[in-house]
């Protein structure tokens, strides 16, 4: 199976500089639809779904591989290899920030910069480190996901197919949105929220932008500060946008911050 169909890779845009957008936990590449139009003119935009998410080939899912963020990082590298990408601008939301970071440690020449939206190197509190969660919170989350499986399996799928209120969103969205297998979603939740990548931060050599939202309970301010302190050549930008999904709630600000960062030369701050 080729990687492009395995990961449902979509390429758009008129530019040549590659910009790879990686979705976070809970969704798929459609979450970027408010952001990508702003970059289509000047960049080559690459969208994809992780194996197990969206319209990827679920048959390629492997429990052992995707129990670890390194397995997801391999998806990124596989795509870079197949498309022969170099100097990629990587834009990752939430857990994808760390997935991109792992990929950039393994093959730094593939990437020119990491743009991280709501990143966190470790979600669970540890001595002297405030990640924002206790282990039992994550267990309760897994339970919540289980409960919603009941609703989703029996009801949500046909409801999404109909989608009478929003015909403008188009057929592909109605078919793909959150069509993640609940079992896989739960595995992804575990891989995400139990990961600890703090020791990897000093290994990064390329420049990075940390987009820290205000009032983000998943990645609180302390986490953004921690990242900024431990990532060489990083820029910390606190957004006005609140919550964990600024690319959906405040796409204009998100686009503007990314655009400004890309216009600054490596190493300088703004």
């Amino acid at each position: 199976m080729d990687i492009s169909s395995r990961n449902n890779v979509k390429i758009l845009g008129k530019g040549s500089t590659p910009m790879l957008f990686a979705h976070g936990f809970g969704c798929d590449q459609n979450m970027w639809r408010f952001i990508t139009p702003a970059f289509e003119k000047s960049y080559k935009i690459i969208l994809f779904d992780y194996v197990g998410a969206g319209h990827s080939k679920v048959s390629a899912y492997n429990e052992e591989r995707y129990a670890n963020l390194n397995g997801y990082a391999q998806d990124i590298l596989d795509i870079c290899h197949e498309l022969q990408l170099k100097d990629v601008i990587f834009v990752g939301h939430s857990v994808s920030s760390m997935i991109g970071l792992l990929a950039a440690i393994k093959e730094p020449a593939r990437f020119s910069s990491l743009i991280m939206i709501g990143p966190s190197p470790c979600y669970i509190n540890d001595s002297g480190y405030k990640g924002g969660f206790e282990k039992r919170d994550i267990e309760e989350l897994l339970n919540t996901m289980d409960k919603n499986y009941i609703g989703w399996a029996n009801f949500l799928a046909p409801a999404i197919m109909k989608n009478p209120e929003r015909p403008e969103l188009g057929q592909e969205l109605t078919e793909s949105f959150c069509s993640t297998d609940p079992k896989i979603a739960k595995d992804f939740a575990k891989a995400t929220f139990f990961s600890d990548n703090r020791a990897d931060l000093p290994k990064v050599t390329i420049r990075s932008l940390i987009m820290q939202c205000s009032d983000d309970i998943i990645a609180p301010n302390e986490v953004g500060d921690y990242l900024h302190k431990n990532l060489k050549n990083s820029t910390l930008k606190v957004l006005k946008a609140t919550g964990h999904c600024p690319h959906m709630s405040e796409p204009e600000e998100t686009v503007e911050v990314i655009r400004q960062y890309l216009h600054t030369t490596a190493g300088s701050t703004y």
């Binding site: 976070g24 936990f25 809970g26 969704c27 459609n30 979450m31 639809r33 939430s94 969660f133 206790e134 919170d137 994550i138 309760e140 989350l141 339970n143 919540t144 996901m145 919603n148 609703g151 009801f155 949500l156 409801a159 999404i160 989608n163 209120e165 929003r166 969103l169 969205l173 949105f177 959150c178 929220f193 983000d216 309970i217 998943i218 919550g243 964990h244 999904c245 959906m248 709630s249």
Partner: peptide
């Protein structure tokens, strides 16, 4: 706390993209 995560990762994205969310 768990619902906060679920809200941010599933519920809100669903609502925003789909304009509705049922039986959550």
């Amino acid at each position: 706390v768990a619902t906060r995560i679920f809200y941010n990762t599933h519920f809100f994205p669903l609502l925003k993209l789909h304009a509705k969310a049922d039986e959550i």
